[in-house]
Amino acid sequence: MTSMAQASGVGTKWLKRFYVFLFAVMAFTGFGQMPIFKRYYISDIPGLGWSADFYKTHYIHYLGGAVLLGLLAYLIVDYLLTGRRRYCLTASAWARIVLLGGIVITGIFRVLKNLPDVVFSPGFTMLIDIAHLGFMMAYLLAGLIFLIFKSRWTTGLDD
């Protein structure tokens, strides 16, 4: 088991940085789905002119969604195969996972709704729209609180 632990765990730091970067992109392009970037001069910032183009932010958000799904699948399977033998998830991690699950599930329904021959009822459409935003806001808030209190995602099994 020790040998397995020694052989694994490479690149975790870079993976964390990539996850934070990916989530920042998703949050930015997600909020960009609301017509606020032009109104509040964000798209006037040099280099951010593209953020007022709803199709561009939508494209990036979708692309990020695909990468996020791939990354989450990798992390889940990696945890089940090796990670759970080396560390366990903290309570704050489980809180974040629940919120992340909410974001992903509502996001998948949002993507399904945008397919050409899929129609959701008005009430359900509104529910997934607002729930997607709500889960994201809650996730960001939880992330901020856990950052302040230095609550980590994982703890070693020996801790």
């Binding site: 397995m4 052989a7 694994s8 199709y55 939508h58 494209y59 979708y62 692309l63 969604g65 695909a66 990468v67 799904l69 791939g70 990354l71 989450l72 699948a73 990798y74 992390l75 889940i76 399977v77 990696d78 195969l81 090796t82 998948i108 993507v111 945008n114 397919l115 050409p116």
Partner: peptide, 28 residues
């Protein structure tokens, strides 16, 4: 673009699973 990227969203988790399985085998 949404249609095309939705296709990528189906493939991406499979790629993630394959990568994790590959890492597990290599680590073992």
């Amino acid at each position: 673009h949404a249609d095309n990227l939705a296709k990528a969203m189906v493939i991406a988790p499979m790629a993630g699973i394959a990568a994790a399985a590959g890492k597990f085998i290599a680590t073992a």
